[in-house]
Amino acid sequence: MYPAKFEYYRANTLQETIHLLQQHSGAKLLAGGHSLIPIMKLRLAQPPVLIDIGRISELSGVMKTDGRLRIGSLTTHAMLAASEAVKKHCPILAEAAAQIADPAVRNKGTIGGNLAHADPGSDLPAVTLALDGVIHITGPEGDRQVNASDFFLDLLTTDLKPEEVLTAVELPALEERTGSCYLKFEHPASGYAVCGAAAVVALGGDGSCERAGLCFNGVTATPYRASAVTEALAGRNLEDATIDQAVTEHLSIDDPMGDTYASGPYRVELAKVYSKRALKKARDRARS
């Protein structure tokens, strides 16, 4: 519970952050600290240098511009859960953020840290993926953007390079007749997702499914996108039976994770049950 020795720098701007990252190899960014500090205390991570970005105001906050939400990487879970813009335009993100751990964690933890850390049990990765989010990154070579579908590479591994900073997440504002739902089966000890199902359903004028998104946290090493299920739903009238059938027939996850609390096959079963429930709730919300 006592971390190894490290140096600490506080960055005041994005540019300064990148400069510091270039100067100190092996340095880690410190945002809310609620993923990084616990593993440092267990000495599972021993970064020689921490660069605290927590006070860079330009990286915090939610902005709405022509049909999209731009969420600064330092926006905390509590801010997401309380933001009127998020609740209106991306309600599933507020719904998921509100289910993260406890108030202390939500007040400190950030969306950027959550996505950058890429813990398979985190709640925001699958939501970002289900919404087809775009990750904004700044590095020594300038800015770049990555689709969420290309961002999560493996367990605790993303497309971020050591000298890059995740600056924002861009999400589409959900339109009329679009419903979404995040349902979570939480681990009784950690509170992380054993299975978190993120469902987004867009209905056409005739009430049939125009588009759907369905992704899971907690089941596989990286957030899992159940494309076969949503493809089977496209164009269909979303009766309960249709949803049940699509999930039963088209959801197959080959490489689930397992641990002493929940085995791989059980997590797959949870994904089935939770995706049916989340899709139905998203549909109901789209209809209302």
């Binding site: 406890d102 681990h187 009784p188 000890a189 950690s190 002493t260």
Partner: peptide, 12 residues
């Protein structure tokens, strides 16, 4: 295997 509060579930 359940040596941390991450794995050992106390009631909340």
């Amino acid at each position: 295997l359940t040596g941390e509060l991450l794995d050992y579930a106390v009631p909340k």
